[in-house]
Amino acid sequence: MTAGIAFVGCGYVADLYQSALANWSETLELKGVYDRDPKRLKTFAKHYGLETYPSFDALLEDPEVEIVVNLTNPDEHYAVTKQALEAGRHVYSEKPLAMDLAEARELVELAADEGLHLVCAPSSALGEAAQTLAREVQSGAHGKPHLVYAELDDGMVHKIGYQNWKTASGAFWPAKDEFKTGCTIEHAGYALTWLVAMFGGVRRVVSFASCLVPDKGKDTPPDYDTPDFSCACLEFDNGVVARMTNSIIAPHDHRFRVFCENSVLEVGETWDYSGKVRVTPVPKSKMRRGAIKLLGMTGSRKIKPQSQRKISTAKRGYPMDFALGVAEMAEALQEGRAPRLAGEFSLHITEVSLAIQYPEQFGTDYRPVSAPGPVAAMEWRSEED
């Protein structure tokens, strides 16, 4: 049984969702799309052969639409999601829930009051690589986890030809919106969802953020001062501490490393849902430095995530299943349960992301209020090479 969904927003990210729908043909059925820009709507719909709605109201009046997928610009997330919830529709929103924490909390409370579900991207914590890593960490086989290093550095984006980043339907990467929103709001969720799914809610955020390159060329937004670098230390209830960086300055580095008592667990690319988990034993304290270095090179093993599916993705970009979160939401609704990342979980990711990017607003030593519950594991299998 498929769930009817509709896209609001036909820009750059819509292609990424559209290209991943093939992974869930038995779960999701795209009823139609809408964009406030008639030209963009026509181009996107024609390229993929999709039905269109003449207005957002018309979309919400379609009784076959169960889930509204909010793919608008971040500044519009709050208003679009609120209107969809008030119309009695479940919502899956691109990140963040809102650019203001009070508005994000209002949306979560509205959904609860209306008996609806609200989920926010990213859903990569449900992907094969993240689930394989979480299973290893939580198994206890590697000893107690102490520390996590999570990097999401993308290089100097303003110097690497983003002007040529174009989707299959012809949408260009929205540079001004990306710079204005900030790389932390755009990217922190990828590591945060992994961390919160494994260790529970963040209890303390100590952050520094700065705009290091205020002139990024012709696409620099007016009065641009959004941080293009952030570094935060996050503390969890169980004592685990994570250091997380986000930047569009430092060279590309998307590693996620968990330092346990007996092993170091590493995923080299958090945007690869099929990425392998490298396990390296912690060397004995009496070993010489040369032997310790050699062990790091030769003593590790890899665990490859295995599942019964082949992931379809957009031609441009990384092997990420953007439709996974929407599909999991649809399955949850059919099973009469809450989606794994719904409500308080999505609010927490938004709250912590905002606190990291804006320490001058939240304080450099911030204690999040939202408290997400445990996240049930997906049924992805893993096996060692």
Rank of each mutant, 00 (worst) to 15 (best):
M297I: 12
G217E: 11
D15M: 02
L118A: 00
P374S: 10
L41I: 03
Y78C: 00
G170S: 09
Y17E: 00
S207M: 04
V264D: 08
R309N: 14
L147C: 12
P38T: 09
Y17P: 03
K293H: 13
N238I: 07
F208E: 15
T132G: 12
V240L: 11
G143V: 03
H187G: 03
E328T: 05
S300N: 15
L212Y: 04
N246I: 09
P214N: 09
Q306M: 15
I248V: 14
R36S: 15
M156Y: 11
K302I: 14
D35F: 03
A22E: 14
Y78G: 02
E106K: 02
S55F: 05
E186M: 13
D35T: 00
I292Q: 08
A134N: 14
A134V: 12
S285M: 12
E103S: 03
D223C: 10
C231N: 13
V33K: 03
G200W: 02
T52K: 02
D223G: 05
A377V: 12
V108P: 02
S124M: 11
T52V: 11
S124G: 05
S210G: 05
E76G: 01
R278N: 10
R40E: 06
D100M: 07
T364F: 07
A332E: 02
Q361P: 01
V148M: 09
V119F: 01
A188L: 13
E331D: 12
V258S: 04
A20E: 04
V202I: 14
P374T: 10
P251Y: 06
R204V: 06
V264M: 13
V277G: 04
F56C: 04
I67H: 02
K218R: 08
V277Y: 05
S300Q: 13
P372L: 02
P74A: 09
R243N: 12
